[in-house]
Amino acid sequence: MKNVLLVTFGLISALSFGQNIDPTSQSEQLVLDNDEMSVVEFVAEPQGQVCGKDMHHHKPHLTILLSDAKVVITTPEGKSQEVEAPYGTALWSEEETHAVINKGNMPTRMILVFPKN
């Protein structure tokens, strides 16, 4: 229960205090890092990179959208797919490599939770 309270406080802290956001790309803030998990908040401006720079790799993780999202996901093979998901969507992703661009007209905000087990 203690970890849940820490994550909740970290999310509230990250969302309550403003961040300097480069209008052409993204910001990234480590919300929590302990022996159990790493939690990172990403904010991507329109046409900005969403959850990492260029083609990048993620270990398995939980994504929680803090805004509506309209993104284009590109695989290392060059295949692209446009995806739309509403605020509050939570989804599990296995290990993957991709590039993601915000194609919406508003910032895309999300939390990624990376288990450490």
Rank of each mutant, 00 (worst) to 15 (best):
E82I: 14
V71W: 01
L32M: 12
M110Q: 09
T24L: 15
P115G: 13
T97F: 07
T24K: 15
L11E: 04
L62K: 07
F42C: 04
A14L: 06
A90F: 11
S27R: 08
I12C: 06
D22Y: 13
E41Y: 02
S27N: 10
T89C: 13
H57M: 11
S93I: 00
L65S: 04
G104R: 09
H57K: 14
D35C: 10
K116H: 00
P86Y: 01
V50Q: 05
H61N: 13
L32T: 05
K53C: 09
K59A: 15
L5D: 07
S27M: 12
V31W: 05
Q47L: 05
Q26I: 11
I21K: 08
S80D: 04
E82M: 02
L65Y: 04
P60V: 01
T97H: 01
N20W: 08
D33K: 15
G78D: 12
S27D: 10
Q19C: 10
E45R: 06
D33N: 12
E45A: 11
G18V: 13
V72F: 02
D54L: 14
G88Q: 09
W92V: 10
Q81I: 14
F42H: 13
L32I: 04
T24E: 12
T108N: 03
I101K: 15
T8R: 14
T108Q: 03
K59G: 11
L5C: 05
V43I: 13
F17N: 12
K59V: 13
V7H: 01
I73R: 05
Q29Y: 07
K70I: 07
F114S: 07
S27P: 00
E82F: 05
S16W: 07
H98N: 04
P107C: 04
V40K: 04
V4M: 11
K79N: 02
L5W: 11
K103W: 02
N3V: 13
G88I: 03
S13A: 15
T63S: 13
Q19H: 10
P86M: 02
E95N: 06
N102E: 00
Q49F: 08
S67D: 08
T108W: 00
P46S: 04
M55A: 02
V50R: 08
P23Q: 08
K2Y: 02
T74N: 01
P76I: 06
K79Q: 11
G10M: 00
Q19K: 14
T63Q: 11
E77P: 08
N3G: 06
I73Q: 09
G48M: 02
Q26S: 15
A69F: 01
N3K: 06
L11Q: 10
E36I: 15
H56A: 12
A90H: 07
P107T: 07
T8P: 05
D68A: 08
Q26R: 14
F42L: 05
P23E: 12
C51N: 14
P86H: 09
K70F: 00
Q47W: 04
